[in-house]
Structure formats: C-alpha cells, structure tokens
Nucleic acid binder design. Structure first.
Lengths: 201, 201
DNA sequence: GTCTATACACTGATAGAC
DNA sequence: GTCTATCAGTGTATAGAC
C-alpha cells in the first residue's frame, strides 16, 4: 500500500519527533515553539503549517502518538515474553526503558492542566488504555484473597509503571548499574517479597 | 526564645506557602509570579520584597523548606513506628500522603533544568538526603545475597518513593479506596511477594 | 510590606511572499 | 514547506512612592 504516492510525512514526522523529545524532557510549559523550531533548524512560524492549532495541537498529537506506540510496544513485548509473570514484567520494563521517558506522573499532574480540559480528558483515557490496561492484564494472574480483585491488579500496574519511570528518570551517573539491571532487581524483589534479615518485631 | 520580639515571618510564611502550593501542583515553568501574587491577594511586584532574587529564589526557598520538612517528618514517622519493617513503611507512606505532593520525578526531570545548574545541584543533594536517605535506612534490614547491599537498599528506597508518589498523583475519582489503603495494599504485596495464582513454567 | 508605573524580553499566533 | 514581518499578550524585573 501507498508505495510511491506517499513518500511524504517525512517532514511531519521530523517535527513530531523533535517536539516529542523536548516535551518529554522538559514538560509542556517549559518548551516554546521556538525551541522546537530551533531543534529542527526552521523558523517558529513554520510549525503552524504542520500544526495549525499551535502548541497545544502539537503536544496532543505528539502525546497521542507516543501513547499508541507504547501500547503497541508494551503488548508486543508482553506477548513475546511467554507465559511467565517475571519474564513478562522484565519485557515490559525493557520496553519502557528503551523509549523516551513518558513521565506519566508529570503528564497527569502538570501538563494536563495546561491544556484544554477536553483534550486533557482524551489523553487521560488514552494513557490509561495504552499504559495501565496492558500492564493490568499481566498482573491479572496474581492471586488475591480480596473481594475486589480487578481493582487490585490496576494498583499493581500503576505501581509497576511508577517504579520503572522512577528508574528512567534517574541521572545516569546515579548508579554504575544499567537501568535494566535495576529494574530486574526490583521485579525479583517484588515477586519474591522482602525478607527482613534477622527481625522479630 | 524570641517571644514577643519576633512575631514577624508570618507574612513571609504565607508567601512561601502559596508558592509551594502552586509550584507543587503545576511545576516551576507553569507557575507565574502573578499566579502566586493573585493567590495571596497582592501585586506581583510585591513578591520581590520577600524574594529579591525573583521566581527562581522563591522556588529554591520553597523547595528547600519542603524537603527539610519531609526529612523531619519522615524520620519522625519512621522512628515512631517501632522496629517492624511493615509498620515503618506504612508510617512513611502516611506521612508522604499527608503532605502536598513533592513530585520528586518532575522536580528532577523538569523543574531542575529550568533553574541555574548550581541551585539545581544543591536541591538534588538536599532531596537525596531528605527523601532517599531516610527510606534507605528503613530498607537496610532487608537481606540481600548480593555483593552490593548498600546500593540495593537505595533502589528499594527510590522504588518505594515512586510508588507512593504515584498514588499521590492519582485523581481522587480514580478509586473508591482511600489512598492510604492503596499504599498499605502495595506495601503488603511487596513484603509478601506476588504469588501467581496457578502458574507453572 | 505593599503599591503603581514602567521597561523590556519573550511567546504564541496571523498574514502573506516565495 | 518554509520564510519574513508583525503584533498583541504575557512574563520577569526594577524604581520609587506610600
């Protein structure tokens, strides 16, 4: 499909990529259209050709694209990891660490409040479907003696995402360990439980 | 000490509190001096009386104050919780949830890049000492068959902080459970380990 | 401690040429 | 697709009166 007739989009993709990189790194409010244009070597006004809606439209497009990519990447990584919970979590962590940081927390807490409520709500739903839902599936196999099993698996998914994003945001000079090793350690810790060394209440 | 001679500082504290609330909620870049002044019912220029260095100084002061409060609150909560790991973690979680969200991740990732590198470095060190260090002490009792026990306890501290902040940032409509209950559930899960329901392989 | 007034840079955005 | 030119609005910051 679309062989020679659409070599285009290359320009648009470049714009989206530059915008994604900057928004991801600094957050919505801290990035100006000039920053994005400079990164591309073009002028600020030229961005309105690609995003007539301006800064907000650019952010929404970029975020939606990133979330879709994450959904696909997460589901694919999990599916390829087989039936073992540990392997699935490691695969999910590796995918998340291979991508530019989403900063799910900052996105929900700060960025969303800077855009129109309507768009914010759409992105919130999209983020849940793309990030939380796939991880919730993974944790569904965890047994729970609780009445509300479904809610608990969502908590686990959120906690997992928080941990991995926390690792992602660490300065690289923080530890000599690669981030993947840190993730694996924390996953094992979580699966096996924390054993106090020699403690008796 | 200082009985009647210094009833002052009340005005300064009001300014810092309003600034803290807004910075905490929206992040450094998204908050203007006018926002802070409006919240106080004063004019923007008046803020320079309390913080001659302007926005950045205000942010640094507010953040440092918050970090110190967290250090004191965390250490106090942990000390009051007795010798049991689970109780200590629950106490730490409750303290964190009782305070305005720190957004440690956003702070490191976004806010720090918007201020002068020198101030940012100071805050990073302060944040480590106030948040990570006390929690690391708690996890020191966890046994590890690893060569690098100290590093691992730091990872655990960071993960714990990430989880609790993740809960903190949830919209209150997200779950019918109070946030403390979610924290307790995740702590128990972590301590006991995740048991796959009926899994082989 | 807070105000008014103002300087001045930056930001998002529009119009129109190439 | 990208540019120049331009503008209104907003943001930080300073000076000085009260």
């Amino acid at each position: 499909m679309k062989p020679e007739t659409e070599p285009a989009q290359s320009s648009r993709q470049r714009v989206l990529q530059a915008a994604e990189q900057l928004f991801s790194e600094h957050g919505y409010a801290a990035v100006t259209l000039r920053d994005i244009a400079d990164a591309l070597g073009i002028k600020q006004a030229s961005l309105y050709y690609h995003a007539p809606g301006g800064k907000e439209e650019l952010f929404v497009q970029v975020t939606e694209r990133g979330l879709k990519r994450h959904q696909q990447g997460l589901e694919s990584a999990i599916a390829s990891a087989g039936m073992n919970l540990r392997d699935q979590l490691q695969a999910a962590a590796r995918w998340l660490l291979s991508q530019p940081a989403l900063n799910y927390g900052r996105m929900l807490q700060s960025d969303m409040r800077a855009i129109s409520p309507h768009e914010a709500e759409r992105l919130r739903v999209s983020a849940y479907r793309s990030l939380i839902a796939p991880l919730t599936q993974v944790f569904a196999v965890v047994q729970s003696h609780s009445s509300d099993h479904a809610a608990k698996t969502v908590y686990l998914a959120g906690a997992f995402l928080s941990i991995i994003e926390g690792i992602h945001n660490l300065p690289t000079t923080f530890s000599d360990q690669p981030k993947e090793a840190m993730a694996d350690y924390l996953i094992d810790t979580w699966l096996n439980g924390l054993q106090p060394g020699s403690y008796s209440s």
